[in-house]
Amino acid sequence: MSNDPIHQFQISKLVPIEIGGLDLSFTNSSLFMVATVAAAAGFLFLTTSNRGMIPSRLQSVSEISYEFVASMLRDGAGSQGMRFFPMVFSLFMFVLVANLLGMFPYFFTVTSHLIVTFALAMLVIGTVVVYGFWKHGLHFLNLFVPSGVPGALMPLVVLIEVISFLSRPISLSVRLFANMLAGHITLKVFAGFVVSLGSMGALGIGGAILPLAMTVALTALEFLVAFLQAYVFAVLTCMYLNDALHPGH
């Protein structure tokens, strides 16, 4: 059972809640969402409480993450995009901290569940659509009509653009979900090899060195992936927001 690589994604109820037939229990997933928010907000809040003119090390970390996301958003969506800064910064920090918390053994990885990443992706796409129509009205649909395309090709191009727009929330959510899921399964499988080979006597213990080294290397890789996927999620969010701000190609 402990060797089952899927077990780590199991959701277990901590406080069963059921309203109107809907299961809204407080689960281990909910607990780690709370932990993620508490860790991210707590870190950002406490490290900046001194408001030091010369930042301490931890305050620097908060400031660097702020400026990292701010420059990402400014590059991706222009200075007008800064109105979405709290959202992009929240998304980046939430995904990053959730991914990193998931690296602790026995911890639950919030972002390894498709529904969570899909909800976050829909938040982004929903913001793009709502803001796009609110700001530009029907001109927002120019997004699907690139300029300089010959008339005959137009229907085809528009079709492709629409499909690409519709696939955005899917690709955005599946990318993050699949990366976290696959990484954790791989880690668990290789770590499982260490245990099962180690129980096979002297030869097995010698042979277990290989998957052990692999596990160590994969752990490092997973830390990279944890950061990289948060970064990719935030960058793509910036690009999609850019479409809402400037729908003409």
């Binding site: 959701i11 809204l24 689960t27 997933s29 969402m33 928010v37 959202m87 929240s90 939430f94 909800a119």
Partner: peptide, 20 residues
């Protein structure tokens, strides 16, 4: 588990966004 996850994500992320 979707309903519970969406609800708690909405609560926690909403709070996080507000705080941010």
């Amino acid at each position: 588990t979707f309903a519970s996850q969406i609800l708690w994500l909405a609560i926690t992320f909403g709070l996080f966004y507000l705080l941010m």
